[in-house]
């Protein structure tokens, strides 16, 4: 949740930034008030429109042909994206800036195995990538 996230670069100028306050989703998370306040404050600070409703219904109701979303491991985000695609809305998922480029080497394994493949890249600004590569990683 920041305007510097590559998803905004991908969406370009015409974007409308929407944060959906989905009561059903949020109450399922079981978060206490402090986290809800924190998250809401982040959305306001980012200059997003905050819209209340069911995520899929809100997005469908926008009448837009294309939605950009930040990549996430959250299965809910995938379900929503599938729901949008099913009604003909194009969904572009944009990855976060990479933190490391792992050297090739099979399975992830435990942390120190990962670190031996990650260290060189991790110790360089922008993971040792050029700015172009850094932001060109559409998912």
């Amino acid at each position: 949740m920041r305007r510097e996230h590559p998803v905004f670069r991908a969406a370009g100028e015409a974007e409308r930034v929407i944060f959906i306050w989905d009561d059903a989703y949020l109450s399922e998370q079981g978060w206490t008030l402090k986290r809800l306040v924190f998250v809401y404050e982040c959305a306001c600070a980012m200059g997003a429109e905050v819209v209340r409703g069911d995520t899929l219904a809100v997005l469908k109701g926008l009448g837009t042909e294309r939605v950009y979303v930040a990549e996430s491991l959250n299965p809910f985000v995938r379900t929503v994206a599938e729901g949008l695609r099913a009604c003909g809305i194009e969904v572009t998922t944009v990855a976060e800036e990479p933190f490391v480029m792992l050297r090739k080497g099979g399975e992830l394994g435990r942390f120190f195995r990962y670190w031996s493949r990650a260290q060189r890249s991790a110790m360089q600004p922008d993971a040792g990538l050029t700015r172009e590569n850094l932001f060109g990683q559409d998912g």
Binding site: L33, V37, Y40, C42, C44, A45
Partner: peptide, 8 residues
Amino acid sequence: ACSTEGGR
């Protein structure tokens, strides 16, 4: 709520 402020 708690004192940690949200936002960039």
